[in-house]
């Protein structure tokens, strides 16, 4: 995200908290694609639901955001939490060990990279999103997800290996 966009989001949050509902309206437009980009790879088919639930949670508790400068980190944490929760609730997630991902040449593997994603648990997908889309290091991603840093690191490594296999098959 560019500094300009970030500054705009912070300014809108500040104006909204001061009581301006038109700024709140613009903040909704501004945050929706950012939240969808986090929620969709984690919640997959339930991405739109996760995006909506995140926006509801963000708007409901906007007044509790002490420092508008912290807007994006705060929104990101809510988005990840909601996406993981929605994905688990929908029972679409079937946490599987990455060793279960099919071997090279397996017709199922050739089908789609989405298949590999779907075989990861929501929390694993969240590690990928936080690290590779949001640019967080393993420690920060692990802290946000409430798992040990070593676990996040090894899961990320194994997930990347699976992707590599999938793409090169």
């Amino acid at each position: 995200m560019t500094d300009d966009r970030r500054d705009r989001g912070v300014a809108l949050a500040r104006a909204a908290r001061a009581g301006n509902t038109l700024a709140l309206h613009q903040l909704l437009d501004h945050l929706t694609p950012y939240i969808a980009r986090i929620c969709t790879p984690i919640a997959l088919a339930d991405g739109p639901d996760a995006t909506q639930e995140t926006l509801l949670a963000v708007f409901r508790s906007l007044r509790s955001l002490k420092d508008p400068q912290a807007l994006y980190g705060w929104v990101r944490a809510i988005a990840v939490r909601e996406a993981v929760r929605i994905a688990q609730r929908a029972a679409r997630a079937h946490p599987a060990e990455l060793a279960d991902v099919p071997e090279r040449g397996d017709p199922q593997l050739a089908a789609d990279i989405d298949d590999v994603l779907a075989r990861l648990s929501p929390a694993h997908r969240a590690v990928l999103v936080l690290r590779d889309v949001e640019g967080l290091d393993e420690e920060a991603a692990a802290a946000l997800l409430g798992v040990p840093a070593g676990t996040a690191k090894s899961r990320l490594h194994r997930a990347r290996m699976s992707f590599r296999k999938a793409w090169s098959s």
Binding site: L24, A36, T40, P48, T51, Q52, F59
Partner: peptide, 18 residues
């Protein structure tokens, strides 16, 4: 996926207005 149903959007806006 970025577009939200207008009625749902209204619920979100209302959540932000005490």
């Amino acid at each position: 996926t970025h577009e939200i149903d207008p009625v749902q959007r209204l619920r979100i806006m209302a959540a932000g207005v005490r």
